[in-house]
Design a binder for these strands. Structure first.
Length: 334
DNA sequence: CCCGTTACGGTTGAT
DNA sequence: AGATCAACCGTAACG
C-alpha cells in the first residue's frame, strides 16, 4: 500500500516489490547499447548492479525491457475445452488410458506441449468431472466453453518468444494495440529508440552501433490473458494490465505516459497523480522522469537539458574509453 | 573492481 | 470480502 519510495545505496529511488519504471529500464538498455559498462550504468542511473544485470540479461534473451508478469495465476491447463475433449474420448472409448488421452489431445491439436495436462491431471478430471458425465465444468464454461475448436495453441505460441513477460502497457510508452502482440517478433526495422520514439535524433544518423534491437517487447504476452481471454480484441496488451507502473506514473487515463518517454518537452498535460509516486523523485516533473535532469544534465554535457540524451551518451562513451575519466561524469551528475 | 547469483522482504492478481 | 498462492520485483550481499 504504501508505495513510498525507498532509496538504495546508490541514492536511487525505488519501490520495493515493484518494477523499475520503463523509462529507466529503457535507459539501461540504451546505455548498454552505447557501450557503457553495466557498472557505470548502475552508477549513473542509481540502480543496483544486480538489477542492471538482470534487465540486461533479460533483454538479451527476450528482446524485452519489460518486467515479467506479476501476480495472477498460471493459466489453467484443464480448460473447459480440454475437459470436453477428454470427456469425448472417454465416451468413445471407455477403456482409454489417461496417457492415451494425453497423446490424443496433442495429436488432435487440442493442446500443445505447453498446455498439455499431465497424466495425473487427466486422471483427476476423469475421476472428478467425468465420472458421471452428467455435469460439466461449469466454472468457466461460460467464458469459452462452447467452442470445440481449441484455441489454446495460440496463446502459448507467444511463449516461445517471450518467456515470461507479459506486457503491460508500459507506462510510458506507446500503447501498442493489442494486435501487436501477435505479430512480428523482431522486426529489425526499429531501433530501440525508434520504437519508443525517444530521441530519435540522437542516434539516428551516426550511430552505426545500434544493433537495431528488438525492443519489440511491447508486444509481449502476459500470462493472464491466456485462455480465458476475456476480451478478445485487445487481449494482448492493454486491457489486462494497467500494469505496474501505470500506477506509478499514474497515467490518468493511460495515455499520457507516452510523453514521458519520448521527448517530453511539453508535458504539463497531466499533473502529478494524487499520490506522489516515489519515482517522481527522479524528475520533478513528469517529463523529466525519464531522462530528466536526474541523470545527465548536470554534468558536462550541458547540451540539452531535455533531450539530453544526446550528449550524454557520447560522453559516456568517451569516458568509458579512458577508464579514469569515468567517474567524473557520475560525480558531476550528482 | 566487475558482475552473476540469490536471499530477502515486498507487491500483484487469479482463484 | 478475505485468504491463498505463485509469480515477479529490486536491493543487498556473497563469491
Amino acid at each position: 500500500m504504501d508505495d513510498s519510495g525507498l532509496v538504495n545505496q546508490l541514492g536511487g529511488v525505488f519501490v520495493n516489490g515493484r518494477p523499475l519504471p520503463n523509462a529507466i529500464r529503457l535507459r539501461i538498455v540504451e546505455l548498454a547499447q552505447l557501450g557503457i559498462r553495466p557498472c557505470d550504468i548502475s552508477r549513473q542511473l542509481r540502480v543496483s548492479h544486480g538489477c542492471v544485470s538482470k534487465i540486461l540479461a533479460r533483454y538479451n534473451e527476450t528482446g524485452s525491457i519489460l518486467p515479467g508478469a506479476i501476480g495472477g495465476s498460471k493459466p489453467r491447463v484443464t480448460t473447459p475445452t480440454v475437459v470436453k475433449h477428454i470427456r469425448t474420448y472417454k465416451q468413445r472409448d471407455p477403456g482409454i488410458f489417461a496417457w492415451e488421452i494425453r497423446d490424443r489431445l496433442l495429436a488432435d491439436g487440442v493442446c500443445d506441449k505447453f498446455n498439455l495436462p499431465s497424466v495425473s491431471s487427466i486422471s483427476r478430471i476423469l475421476r472428478n468431472k467425468i465420472g458421471n458425465l452428467s455435469q460439466q465444468s461449469q466454472y468457466e464454461s461460460g467464458k469459452q466453453a462452447p467452442h470445440p475448436p481449441p484455441q489454446p495453441t495460440l496463446p502459448y505460441n507467444h511463449l516461445y518468444s517471450y518467456p515470461t513477460s507479459k506486457v503491460p502497457t508500459p507506462p510510458g510508452m506507446p500503447t501498442l494495440p493489442g494486435h501487436m502482440a501477435m505479430h512480428r517478433i523482431w522486426p529489425s526495422s526499429h531501433s530501440v529508440t525508434d520504437i519508443l520514439g525517444i530521441r530519435s535524433i540522437t542516434e539516428q544518423q551516426s550511430n552505426p552501433s545500434f544493433p537495431s534491437a528488438k525492443l519489440e517487447e511491447w508486444s509481449a504476452i502476459n500470462r493472464t490473458n491466456f485462455p480465458p481471454a476475456s476480451s478478445p480484441l485487445v487481449n494482448g496488451v492493454d486491457k489486462p494490465h494497467l500494469e505496474p507502473e501505470a500506477k506509478y506514473t499514474q497515467t490518468p487515463n493511460g495515455l499520457p505516459t507516452v510523453n514521458s518517454y519520448v521527448t517530453a518537452p511539453s508535458i504539463p498535460p497531466y499533473h502529478p497523480p494524487t499520490q506522489v509516486s516515489p519515482y517522481m523523485g527522479y524528475s520533478a516533473t513528469t517529463s523529466a522522469y525519464v531522462t530528466g535532469p536526474t541523470w545527465q544534465p548536470a554534468s558536462g554535457s550541458a547540451l540539452s537539458p531535455h533531450s539530453c540524451d544526446i550528449a550524454t551518451p557520447l560522453a559516456f562513451k568517451s569516458m568509458s574509453a579512458n577508464r579514469d575519466a569515468i567517474h567524473p561524469v557520475a560525480a558531476s551528475v550528482l
